[in-house]
């Protein structure tokens, strides 16, 4: 307390959540280095471009899940909302609607899911696990219903009056590049910048942390707890909707299984990056790093020709390990405090 003039580097490292992010970042760099040793194409320009594009959806859904986790809740509906967004956009376009309008309509539907999630958890006091498990199933069902339990045709099919526009959307979201980097990555970065700003610099962000840390205290301090929780779920659904759009742009069709188990990827990306599932701690930079670890494993293990199963085993171990490191570090701190 007395040494107010701390070493600025030390202060930065000890700031909220930064420690874990740096630890994982070091791991990430080592990981990239190893993959590059085995296959020197890994850090080649082509693969790096692909890699960045691959990371993007994980970053986006990780941001959404990160918000919800920091409030000490969870959103299991993310994957299904991705699927719903993807299917709704594709179905509407295939039925001759203006693609922009299609995107807007499906975005509104997805945001409605966020509101429902938030209301169920915050006002109806449903356990978030149960509430969002319910909406997860419902949204997947809607994804299957909108086109009569079939995947859609191509959204840029011949004869469609909106072909050019749809093509433009596909390029904007997935295939096009700006400054030599795929647009998908830029989209993720912009979303990250916006939501990182909200979380780190606005009172809404402060309330998100406060609720995750101590709901009762927040309520008594005059924080509108239900509204903040709804906001967090809304952000989560927004991120899922965008990811659905990207998925749709990538394949050019609506697939009913789009986004399957993305909610768990999102939890993993957040948790690897140091966001606690118990709420109150973590920063969105962690999501950047966590999503990168996930995508690098995905991409790297493919580059060095291993089986998918092995990737899953390794990634699962990383999830456990990263949380374990955090727990050990924190309990270490605790015993230190007791001995003061």
């Amino acid at each position: 307390m007395e040494n107010k003039k701390q070493n600025p580097i030390k202060k930065f490292v000890s700031a909220r959540g930064v420690g874990q992010v740096l630890t994982v970042l070091v791991g990430l760099v080592i990981l990239c280095f190893i993959f590059n040793l085995i296959n020197s194409n890994f850090l080649g320009p082509r693969n790096v471009a692909n890699l960045l594009r691959q990371i993007a959806p994980y970053i986006i859904i990780g941001i959404g899940q990160g918000y919800v986790l920091i409030t000490a809740n969870i959103d299991l509906s993310i994957g299904s909302v991705v699927g719903m967004s993807c299917m709704m956009i594709a179905t509407l376009i295939c039925n001759g609607l203006n693609p922009y309008l299609a995107i807007l309509i499906s975005l509104i539907a997805c945001l409605a899911v966020g509101v429902i999630n938030g209301e169920l958890v915050a006002r109806c006091k449903l356990p978030p696990f149960v509430a969002t498990l319910g909406t997860q199933t419902i949204c997947r069902g809607i994804a299957q219903l909108v086109n009569g339990n079939l995947n859609t045709d191509s959204i840029v099919g011949a004869g469609s009056q909106w072909r050019e526009v749809a093509e433009g959307v596909r390029n904007f979201c997935y295939y096009g590049k700006t400054f030599g980097v795929y647009n998908t990555f830029w989209i993720a970065l912009v979303i990250w910048l916006i939501f990182n700003f909200i979380l780190a610099y606005t009172s809404t962000g402060r309330h998100v942390y406060a609720i995750g840390s101590n709901v009762e205290a927040s309520k008594l301090s005059g924080v509108n707890v239900p509204r903040t929780i709804v906001k967090a779920y809304l952000i989560s659904s927004f991120c899922a909707a965008v990811t659905g759009l990207i998925t749709c742009a990538q394949s050019g069709t609506g697939t009913m299984n789009a986004g399957m188990s993305y909610e768990t990827f999102a939890v993993a990306a957040s948790v690897i990056g140091g966001i606690s599932t118990m709420g109150g701690t973590g920063i969105l930079s962690g999501v950047l790093v966590g999503a990168s670890v996930w995508a690098v494993m995905d991409n790297g293990l493919q580059m060095v020709n291993t089986q998918v199963g092995l990737k899953n085993v390794v990634v699962g171990m990383i999830v456990i390990l990263s949380v374990l490191i955090d727990v050990v570090r924190r309990s270490g701190k605790l015993s230190f405090k007791r001995n003061k």
Partner: peptide, 13 residues
Amino acid sequence: CQHLTVAENMFLG
């Protein structure tokens, strides 16, 4: 809120 600073707690809400 244990995870927030003294000032953040004082001005919470």
